[in-house]
């Protein structure tokens, strides 16, 4: 089955490291990704302004994937994955919405396919590629203690059908385990990075990110693993701003899971965009002596 990929705005415009690492890792695991031909927003920020317009944008994303003749769509961003999932539900559960959307898509000769399967990087690797296949493909390390942060919108809310268990998600931890690292359970694991507040309350957004990083610092982990461009933005790019709100030096290496996996697959650091991370990833790299 052909797999299309929808990156979303955040990845395409700044979280290049995530994009690069996904592009590097997938072919090594036997998956070819087809890019959508156009840049497009999933509808997330539009949702607060006009729900239908957001649904339309999501539908257009899925329709563009369908036009590529893809049966499934990989969405590496948590927020996009959620917005598209809600749109899917709204289209499939409400005839009026579905008719309106289909009509608008038809004007561009596009078509909505309800069978389009959505994946996030986490369940794609864990379920579609398969945890065992990942394990076999990597050269695991030893003695690495990492914390995982799955983010909010790929696990909540369960009724929508999400990527992992809402209260005790384990897939990302298992994937981290596959590259030979131990994951640490911590009380704030399910807490939000705060990214959405960048649109309205910037200081609070940083405080939320800072609170979590401070706890992780106290736990003394070797790094934090994320799988969402928003979370990456907050914990990696904005770590200094986050630190300022909690008044401590944080200095926690933050990497995307696909970067970590790429290293374990023997891919060159630069190809994985590790030179773009703003947090002190060198410490982590030293620890695994790459």
């Amino acid at each position: 089955m052909k797999t299309a990929v929808f990156w979303g705005c955040r990845i395409l415009t700044s979280q290049y490291a995530y994009e690069m690492s996904v592009r590097e890792v997938m072919p090594k695991l036997g998956v070819e990704l087809a890019d959508l031909p156009e840049a497009l927003c999933c509808g997330d920020p539009v949702k607060s302004v006009n729900d239908f317009a957001a649904t339309y944008l999501s539908a257009r994303v899925m329709a563009l994937a369908h036009a590529l003749d893809a049966g499934q769509l990989l969405v590496p961003c948590n927020r996009c994955h959620f917005t598209i999932s809600e749109a899917k539900r709204s289209i499939e559960g409400d005839k009026k919405v579905s008719e309106k959307v289909s009509g608008m898509l038809a004007e561009e000769k596009l078509e909505y396919n309800p069978n389009m399967r959505l994946w996030h990087v986490i369940d794609f690797l864990h379920g579609f590629v398969g945890l065992e296949k990942v394990k076999k493909a990597v050269k695991p390390w030893k003695g690495l203690r990492l914390a995982s942060h799955v983010g909010c919108q790929i696990i909540r809310y369960s009724d929508l059908g999400r990527v992992d268990n809402a209260e005790n998600p384990t897939k990302l931890d298992e994937l981290i385990g596959a590259v030979g690292a131990e994951t640490v359970d911590y009380a704030e694991k399910l807490d939000c990075c705060g990214a959405h507040l960048l649109l309205s309350h910037v200081d609070t957004a940083f405080s939320l990110a800072g609170a979590k990083l401070r706890s992780l610092r106290e736990l003394g982990v070797d790094g934090l693993v994320v799988s969402c461009p928003d979370c990456g933005l907050m914990y990696d790019f904005k770590q200094k701003d986050a630190a300022a709100t909690v008044g401590v030096k944080l200095e926690i290496p933050v990497v995307y899971y696909t970067q970590l996996l790429g290293l374990a697959l023997g891919i060159d650091q630069e190809k994985l965009g590790l030179h773009l991370n703003q947090s002190p990833v060198d410490r982590l790299l030293m620890k695994i002596s790459v």
Binding site: C9, T13, C41, D44, P45, V46, A53, L199
Partner: peptide
């Protein structure tokens, strides 16, 4: 920021 995102989508497709 929300309105800005919407007009950006309108102009470039992206927020």
């Amino acid at each position: 920021a929300f309105m800005k995102a919407v007009s950006q989508v309108l102009e470039t497709g992206m927020a």
